[in-house]
């Protein structure tokens, strides 16, 4: 069964790569100017492109032939993970991405940690007493927080903490205090959602017959939570990780741009701005395949927590 799930993830990875290929090819075709010249620039960098290089590319790709033939070559490059060089910086796409990944992972890690400390514990407490004052208070708070998009949260924090109070720098990278505001921005959004998820999962488990039975067996609330609660909400929480990833990626793009954090999201916005197709392709591929890899990890973790063959 697990091999079947992993096989499905492999197929998913293939389709993701194909979709990235289609989208970036269409992007390439939509740009104004000579396509061969741009592709040559994408391979060797703008400085190195000569009319000869462009002609060589045109001949190799058969750009005078129909579009689908060029598309097949485009896909072939992608299939070999040959992403070329950034049109703007002239450095290989993989090097650029590797460099930015570090900064992004640093920020995302800090945000995830922070949100994990805030969201799930509050949600579990609220779910155990569904309908209680904490539950209702948290509902209002998380509804309010979820109505604040992440860029707005960043804006609010900048205005409050940096402009009004002058406590922390609004932008920059390198010193420890630089990470606080962007990480907090991301974490608050994530926590608002993860608190809700944990609350619903916990309330659902606490309403199941085995939870009532555990109480009747004489176990205290704390014993119930430790022995029967946490593991049973585990599957829902692990599955939720994938969703967090999506939120995190979108958040990172926006938050990095606002706070000037030199990560992959910041670079993506620049690449779109500069129509740097190889960079866009590399980033899209990385994010898409990262999501698939996370899905596969989630599959494995889920089976570890809940080894039953057929799940309800």
């Amino acid at each position: 069964m697990i091999w079947r799930a992993l096989g499905y993830r492999a197929a998913q990875a293939g389709v993701v790569a194909f979709l990235v290929g289609v989208l970036t090819f269409l992007m390439m075709q939509a740009l104004p100017g000579d396509m061969a010249f741009r592709i040559a620039a994408g391979r060797y960098g703008y400085d190195m492109v000569t009319a000869d290089a462009a002609a060589a590319v045109r001949a190799e790709l058969g750009l005078d032939r129909p579009a689908w033939a060029a598309f097949m070559v485009w896909l072939g490059d992608l299939g070999r993970l040959d992403l070329g060089v950034s049109v703007i910086s002239g450095r290989p796409v993989w090097d650029e991405i590797r460099h930015q990944m570090g900064a992004s992972l640093h920020l995302a890690g800090a945000a995830l940690l922070l949100s994990a400390l805030i969201g799930p514990p509050l949600g579990i407490l609220a779910g155990l007493r569904a309908g209680g004052w904490l539950d209702r208070g948290l509902l209002v708070l998380s509804s309010g927080l979820r109505a604040v998009p992440q860029f707005l949260m960043g804006l609010i924090l900048i205005v409050l903490v940096s402009i009004q109070l002058s406590w922390l720098p609004a932008a920059g990278h390198g010193r420890a205090e630089h990470i606080i505001l962007p990480a907090l921005t991301l974490a608050l959004g994530l926590a608002a959602v993860s608190a809700r998820m944990a609350r619903d999962a916990m309330a659902g488990v606490a309403a199941r017959p085995f939870y009532a039975f555990g109480r009747w067996k004489g176990l205290s609330e704390g014993q119930m939570l430790r022995r029967h609660g946490l593991r049973n909400i585990g599957v829902a929480m692990v599955t939720f990780l994938s969703l967090q990833f999506v939120m995190l990626v979108e958040g990172v793009v926006v938050v990095e741009s606002i706070f000037g954090w030199p990560g992959i999201g910041h670079a993506l916005v620049h690449a779109i701005f500069g129509r740097d197709v190889p960079m866009v392709q590399g980033t899209a591929l990385l994010l898409g395949l990262g999501f698939v890899a996370l899905n596969a990890l989630t599959d494995l973790l889920t089976r570890l927590i809940d080894p039953r063959e057929i799940r309800a």
């Binding site: 998913q12 389709v15 993701v16 979709l19 990235v20 989208l23 999506v246 990626v249 979108e250 793009v253 926006v254 993506l268 980033t283 899209a284 994010l287 898409g288 395949l289 999501f291 698939v292 899905n295």
Partner: peptide, 9 residues
């Protein structure tokens, strides 16, 4: 597979 591509992207 489409889900794997971030919406913003």
């Amino acid at each position: 597979s489409v889900l794997a591509l971030p919406g913003l992207l």
